[in-house]
């Protein structure tokens, strides 16, 4: 049972590391099933599966300075580092905080009980719509993180002038008026389609 059972959960949270957890969980399950299967085989037939004979011979002949041991050690270190990084790196928020509207205190709710966010996809879509409204923009694609909005503009113009700066300024002021807090950094790259 979750601690949040029956209560609303925060909308703005960091990644839950589901994919690494699933990968490691699957590896653990596979290892466990293999070990159980091998042991049951041994108990049922009175000898280990013939496929393990080669591994036993390899292990019996192995010394600590063998390149195989070095490779196993390096592999374990790399896997360990990856797992530790998966756990340690906090990751970006999935949504951006939005300030409440002026006069929003009308609901009598304390600020701590109020959370307003805009999804990263929403911010990207809003930025794209703003770019497409600008004269000279042929097409645009946008990506947004919690701190940065990147605009990729394609224009049929020969002279791009300050199109990128104009688009960035327009998007910035739109995000400001939307109430994003803090307003993410906006940058633009302009490519000519000619």
């Amino acid at each position: 049972m979750s601690l949040n059972e029956g209560h609303s959960t925060p909308l703005r949270h960091r990644p839950t590391r589901t994919i690494p957890a699933l990968v490691v969980g699957l590896l653990m399950l596979a290892s466990g099933v293999t070990l159980v299967w091998l042991t049951i085989w041994r108990l049922a037939n009175g000898h280990w599966p013939p496929g393990l004979r080669g591994m036993r011979n390899w292990l019996a002949a192995l010394d600590w300075a063998d390149p195989g041991i070095w490779m196993i050690g390096a592999g374990l270190v790399m896997a360990g580092v990856v797992l530790v990084l998966c756990a340690a790196i906090p990751g970006g928020f999935g949504a951006l905080r939005v300030a409440g509207a002026d006069g929003s205190g009308a609901d009598g709710m304390p600020d701590a009980a109020r959370e307003i966010v805009m999804t990263r996809r929403g911010v990207a879509h809003l930025a794209k719509a703003q770019c497409l409204d600008l004269d000279g923009v042929g097409s645009a694609s946008t990506t947004a993180t919690a701190k940065h909005v990147q605009l990729h503009i394609r224009t049929p113009l020969h002279d791009q002038g300050d199109l990128g700066a104009q688009a960035a300024q327009r998007v910035r002021s739109c995000l400001e008026s939307a109430g994003l807090q803090p307003v993410p950094r906006v940058s633009a790259t302009v490519t000519s389609t000619r």
């Binding site: 979750s2 601690l3 949040n4 959960t9 925060p10 949270h13 960091r14 990644p15 839950t16 590391r17 589901t18 690494p20 957890a21 490691v24 600590w64 300075a65 063998d66 041991i69 070095w70 196993i72 050690g73 390096a74 592999g75 374990l76 270190v77 790399m78 896997a79 360990g80 580092v81 990856v82 797992l83 530790v84 990084l85 998966c86 756990a87 340690a88």
Partner: peptide, 29 residues
């Protein structure tokens, strides 16, 4: 949130164990 905490904790513990094992193997080799 609770799944995120669980995942981070176990990934950290397993990562540390695997890292230590790998380091010991390399040092021994």
């Amino acid at each position: 949130r609770s799944v995120g905490t669980l995942n981070r904790t176990w990934l950290g513990i397993l990562g540390f164990l695997v890292l230590m094992t790998g380091s010991i193997v390399i040092l021994q080799a």
